[in-house]
């Protein structure tokens, strides 16, 4: 039988405010990486640019824009601005085709 490790009770906890669902435990979310990495447009076939998108990360000490997915909730993506030193979250905004309807930027 396949065994799965116990959830991270007692290790690390934080709360994230999903723009769609409200404040939830971070266990409901999946981290999807650095939100500042953007895929080169469809007409860009440069290996170097794609390499940057896939592999190059800055690992900043301080404010970091991160992409999270509310996997065990609404499954929507959001960009969380988190301070990597203090863990303080200063912003959380939705991304996706529906952000305009929610008053988002794109």
């Amino acid at each position: 039988m396949k065994r799965v490790a116990a959830p991270h009770l007692g290790t690390i906890k934080m709360r994230l405010t999903c723009p769609f669902c409200g404040e939830r435990d971070h266990q409901e979310f999946t981290y999807r990486g650095d939100a500042s990495a953007t895929r080169p447009p469809m007409d860009n076939g440069s290996i170097e640019d794609h390499n940057t998108y896939v592999f190059d990360r800055t690992n900043p000490d301080g404010e970091h824009r991160e992409l999270w997915n509310h996997t065990s909730g609404c499954r929507m993506h959001m960009v969380v601005t988190r301070n990597t030193t203090t863990h303080k979250i200063s912003n959380c905004e939705p991304v996706g085709p529906w952000t305009k309807a929610l008053g988002g930027k794109s």
Partner: peptide, 16 residues
């Protein structure tokens, strides 16, 4: 599913 959702939401939000 996560792969598709990521590309739909984040990479090409202009696609319907």
């Amino acid at each position: 599913m996560e792969h598709l959702e990521y590309h739909r939401d984040v990479v090409w939000p202009d696609l319907k």
